[in-house]
Amino acid sequence: MINLVMQKALLPVLDLSEFPNTVIDVFVELTQTDAGTRCAGINAAALALADAGLAMKDLVSSISVGKVGDKVVVDLSKEEEDFEGGSTDIPVAFMPRTNKLTLLQLDGNVKKDELKQALEMAKKACQTIQQIQVKALKEKYGESK
């Protein structure tokens, strides 16, 4: 299941028509987990695809947002996910340039306006993540001028 949603999250940025009869295998190893694992995995996989030199329309940046008690928050930890007063986990992934969602799941209980607020917060967080991803790529390949 987690591999399916990660695949769907990454697929929209790739142009696979250039590689007929080819399979791109993406392996994600989780060495330590403390909630938000699929999001971290997607962030890493998007960078790895770029590092592999595949043509991409955009990066994919992912974060989990949600509600802990009655507070809407970004990047839930394991303790927050297991909060006894009720917790909602919404893993999302954005294509940061177009601000479109490629991953969206939800477990918990939210009202529509809370969800809207959470998605807006996720959009902002993913823009920050994208900057960090771009920085990492530039550090490896040097600033292109």
Partner: peptide, 18 residues
């Protein structure tokens, strides 16, 4: 209120569309 959600399909969605 919404208690579960799952996106599928190969194309992305904007927040407004969601």
């Amino acid at each position: 209120s919404i208690c579960a959600m799952q996106k599928g399909g190969d194309q992305p969605l904007s927040i407004e569309e969601v």
